[in-house]
Design a protein around this nucleic acid. Structure first.
Length: 403
RNA sequence: GUGGGAUUAGCUCAGUUGGUUAGAGCACUGGUUUGUGGUGCCGGGGGUCACGGGUUCGAGCCCCGCAUCCCACCCCA
């Protein structure tokens, strides 16, 4: 038997119902916020991710499905969604056109990681990207949108917030931090030593308790923001307060992708194990110019659909549509024709085998049909059809023309 | 990539110190004497015990390998 590749799952039946329900709910909300759907290719030039996500990130340095295609192009399956959307935005010259452009997307992402609960090699994200709005109110809108989507799905969460600063305050802070860490380099873990060289800010996010203790005395970016960043962060907090969205400031929150600046946020769940981040995002004002576009402010987020799946509270499934069956073999053809007509407007399932009434009622129950419609000898004689409403338990007999 | 645990029917799981033909519940399917369901009763099908080796008179059970899943690290959605 050939089975699916490690970390790559089929989505069907109950899972598919939940998956679709989430996409539909999130789509509606994104549209309410003025976003439009965008679809970009699953395969992109490798250079796109190296330049956007950053070569120092684990995603690019060891997790990409990368290969050379038959045209000798260095390509890879997308490990995240933002890079492709930004590429499309620039390629379509929307950066030069100016104005505001808001997109949402959903689809498969690929990362070659060791699978675990909530961590797959092929997984699905729902994300949005907003271009051309530098106001921090847009950042707030992003967070409100995630909160709306999660609430609509009945999902509980904690929201963590941080500011990563901008070109004015981040570089001096970075130097500051490097100096601090260099002084205690002999006490920190191996990973942190590596991080100082590749991406020093990420040491703050280290899970090692010894390191965490040491970093408690480290300078905090939140206390060293320039006035612009600080004002924006204050406004953001106020807007969230005004709209009753609870948050906690996590000065160690560092997004794993290199392109983020200023607002960074993460929604976590305490109910799904160690892979607890269910949504994450932030501002990335410099990414468009990194990818050769005209400088354009941007902010976005992504949600991991598989991680949300078991948290989604599905609405109660209601009886729907028709079930049709015959009690005599001679009636099967008539059932078939009536069902064909009915299917133009309603969900209709047919049982092709003649059965007694009891079994048809059981069958109708099984497919969760609202109406059980049966044709037997009596009905054939009178050219009628017997219908029972399984919800209200009422019955009627209609002529086949009326049906 | 590192460390640990698990794997028996479609699903959830029993299976004694290694000993006849591997079980249960649910699900599926048929019947319940020919017109009333979701909730009665009776029956039926379905297992290379993940896979590959080894030890043994004999392995679901012990040993080795391997695959997958789970947990933690790591990473991140």
């Amino acid at each position: 038997m050939i089975s699916s590749l490690r970390g790559m799952n089929d989505i069907l039946e109950e899972d598919y119902e939940r998956f679709t329900y989430f996409i539909n709910t999130a789509t509606k909300i994104a549209q309410n916020y003025g976003f439009h759907f965008i679809q970009t290719p699953l395969l992109e030039e490798t250079a796109l991710f190296k330049r956007s996500v950053g070569e120092s990130s684990d995603i690019v340095s060891k997790e990409m499905y990368q290969f050379i295609d038959k045209g000798e192009n260095d390509v890879c399956l997308r490990p995240e969604g933002t890079a492709g959307v930004v590429r499309a935005f620039i390629q379509k010259k929307l950066d030069k056109a100016g104005g505001i452009h808001r997109f949402f997307y959903h689809g498969a992402m690929f990362r070659y990681e060791r699978p675990q609960k909530g961590r797959l090699r092929q997984f699905h994200q729902f994300g949005v990207e907003s271009f051309g709005v530098d106001s921090v109110y847009e950042d707030a809108s992003m967070i409100m949108m995630v909160a709306d989507i999660l609430s609509a799905c009945g999902i509980g969460y904690r929201l963590q917030l941080n500011s990563l600063g901008d070109l004015n305050c981040m570089p001096p802070y970075r130097e500051n931090l490097i100096n601090f860490v260099k002084n205690i380099e002999d006490k920190i873990c191996e990973d942190c030593v590596r991080r100082v060289a590749t991406n020093p800010i990420r040491v703050l996010d280290c899970k090692n308790p010894t390191c965490q203790e040491l970093y408690e005395k480290a300078p905090k970016l939140i206390n060293n923001l320039c006035s612009g960043c600080k004002d924006d962060f204050d406004i953001l907090k106020k807007v969230l307060d005004d709209n009753s969205i609870a948050y906690e400031i996590n000065t160690n929150l560092v997004r794993g992708l290199d392109y983020y600046s200023k607002t960074a946020f993460e929604f976590v769940s305490d109910e799904i194990g160690s892979q607890s981040a269910i949504a994450g995002g932030g501002r990335y004002d410099r990414l468009i110019e990194f990818l050769d576009g005209r400088p354009t402010p941007a902010v976005g987020f992504a949600m991991g659909i598989e991680r949300l799946m078991e948290l989604i509270q599905m609405p109660e499934s209601k009886r729907e549509g028709y079930y049709m069956g015959a009690m005599d073999d001679e009636a099967v053809d008539l059932v078939m024709s009536l069902a064909h007509k009915k299917r133009k407007t309603d969900k209709t399932t047919i049982d092709y085998k003649a059965k007694n009434l009891k079994n048809h009622l059981k069958g109708a129950d099984k497919v969760n049909a609202r109406f059980c419609c049966v044709i037997g000898t009596n009905e054939m004689e009178n050219q009628t059809i017997w219908i029972k409403d399984l919800e209200n338990k009422t019955e009627q007999t209609l002529s086949i023309e009326e049906f």
